[in-house]
Simulated assay, not measured.
Amino acid sequence: MTVAVTGASGQLGRLVVQALLREGAPVVAIVRDPQKVADLAEQGAEVRQASYDDADALDRALAGVDRVLLVSGNEFGARVAQHANVIRAAERAGVELLAYTSIPQGTENSMILAQEHIGTEAALATSTVPHAILRNSWYWENYLGGLAHAVESGVLYGAASEGRVAGAARADYADAAAKVLTTDGHAGQVYELGGDEHLTYAELAQAISTAAGKQVRYQDLPEADYAAALQQSGLDADYAKVLADADTGIAKGLLDVTSGHLQKLLGRPATSAVEVFRRALS
């Protein structure tokens, strides 16, 4: 059984390829630039070149593939059409299972980040390829970009109020995807995936404090003020808006997943925020 992973040079895709290789599965790593995954080739993955925009290349990349993980792209505004290209190529290839990395509540989530996932899930619903949807909640690694500043300043800023986020390590989601891709019974399933911890941002600040050995507190801001602060820190205005909107989504409970699906797929607890932060700081 051959398993393909799109976006295999990305942070999640790379981890999924490595998890599949540990399982002994024949793996096809699909990337735009093969040079970026030379190490995966050395580990045993077959590398094939294709972009989400190139239907012919996708047909070649999925030839002979039994199962495929469609890792959501990062070209905002183009992702629904790009993902549809992969779905259609999977149909033409006769793939027996396509798994897609979506977002919690992926048909009704109001976050800006969710809208192209909603469009992709709609495309999957009308496709003929058997599929499973992996609705990943937040990665604890999403907070690493501001981790050093939070530790240095003693303040974690955000706009999540008292909302809770059920995060996990990126590797946890990768291992869960590998499980779906290498075992049976997943076609037609929708997995709401989130970690064991359901943390407010005040509790996230405490997790950073524990990992750093230095007290960090949480300062809640209105969404617009937080977006402005992110821009002042150097982020693009549109990206700052997306991140601030995501915090508002957390305040609404949109990333507080309680299904237990991740833990069932993993057969173990998810990785704690403290562990992820401690590794990053070390």
Rank of each mutant, 00 (worst) to 15 (best):
S9H: 06
A4F: 05
K179E: 15
R32L: 01
I112Y: 13
G24H: 04
L265E: 01
T120E: 06
I208K: 01
L144M: 06
V68P: 08
N142Q: 11
P130K: 02
E91M: 00
W140I: 09
Q189L: 13
N85I: 02
Y191W: 08
E116Q: 11
V151K: 07
T271K: 09
A176T: 06
L113V: 13
L98R: 02
V27R: 06
S282Y: 00
A19G: 06
Q43S: 11
T2W: 13
A78C: 00
L230T: 07
A205S: 02
V129C: 01
T6H: 00
A246I: 13
V80R: 07
D54L: 09
A205T: 01
A61M: 10
N136F: 14
R170I: 14
E203G: 09
F277D: 03
S110W: 09
G185V: 06
E223M: 12
V274W: 11
D66A: 14
F277I: 10
H149E: 15
I208N: 02
I208V: 11
A246E: 11
H131V: 09
A280R: 10
S110C: 00
T101I: 03
G158N: 09
E91D: 07
L15W: 05
N74E: 12
A19R: 10
L156A: 09
I133T: 13
D175G: 00
R170L: 15
L97M: 02
E162R: 14
T182N: 03
W138E: 10
A90C: 06
R79H: 13
D54Q: 11
V80K: 01
